[in-house]
Simulated assay, not measured.
Amino acid sequence: MEFVLADETGQKIHATCKQTYIESKGRILTVGAWRYIRNFQITPAGGTYRTTDHTWKIVFNQNTAVSRSNHVNDELYLNLSDFQTVLSGTLDENFLIDVLGQVLDCGGVENIQCTGGKQRKKLEFTLSDINDSRLPCCIWGNLAEILHSAINQEVGMVTMLLRFAKLGRFRGELQISNAFDASQMMINPSIPEAEAFKELINDDDKTLTSFQSNEDNNKQVAQSGKRGQRDKWLLFPTKSIYEMITSTQVSSY
Rank of each mutant, 00 (worst) to 15 (best):
F211V: 00
I241M: 15
A222G: 01
D204W: 05
I241K: 15
S240Q: 05
E215G: 02
S224F: 14
D204Y: 05
K206A: 04
G225A: 04
N202P: 00
E215M: 11
G225D: 09
Q229Y: 15
T207L: 09
G228D: 08
D205M: 11
N214M: 04
D231S: 12
P237Q: 03
D205Y: 03
S224K: 10
L235C: 00
N214S: 09
D203K: 14
D231N: 14
R227E: 13
L208W: 05
D204H: 08
R230L: 14
F236Q: 09
S213A: 11
F211W: 01
N218P: 01
Q220S: 06
K226P: 00
D204C: 05
F236D: 04
F211E: 03
P237I: 08
E215K: 15
V221C: 08
K232Q: 12
G228E: 12
G225K: 03
A222F: 03
K219R: 06
Q223A: 04
V221I: 10
D231G: 01
S213M: 11
R230M: 12
N202I: 09
Y242I: 04
K219H: 13
D205W: 03
R227F: 06
S213F: 13
K226V: 10
N217M: 09
Q229S: 10
D205G: 01
R227Q: 11
W233V: 10
Q229A: 12
Q223Y: 03
V221W: 14
A222H: 07
Q212S: 12
T207P: 00
S240K: 00
S210H: 14
D203N: 07
G228H: 06
D205S: 13
D203E: 11
S240F: 03
G228N: 07
S213Q: 05
W233I: 11
L235M: 08
Q229E: 10
S210A: 05
T209K: 06
T209V: 09
T207F: 12
D216A: 05
L208E: 05
Y242S: 13
T238Q: 15
F236N: 04
N214D: 15
R227C: 13
K239I: 14
T209R: 01
T238P: 05
A222K: 03
L235S: 04
K206M: 09
T207I: 11
W233N: 10
D203I: 00
P237G: 10
A222I: 01
D231Q: 05
Q229L: 09
T238H: 15
N202K: 14
G225P: 02
D216S: 06
P237W: 02
F211R: 00
L234I: 08
D231E: 03
Q229C: 05
V221S: 06
K206I: 12
L208N: 08
S224C: 07
L208Y: 06
Q212N: 07
K239D: 06
G228C: 08
E215C: 05
W233Y: 07
D203Q: 12
Q220T: 10
T209G: 00
F236L: 13
G225E: 04
Q220P: 02
K226T: 10
F211Q: 00
K239S: 14
Q223W: 07
N218Q: 11
S240M: 04
N214C: 11
L234K: 03
Y242E: 13
Q229V: 07
L208I: 11
K239W: 03
K232W: 02
T238R: 15
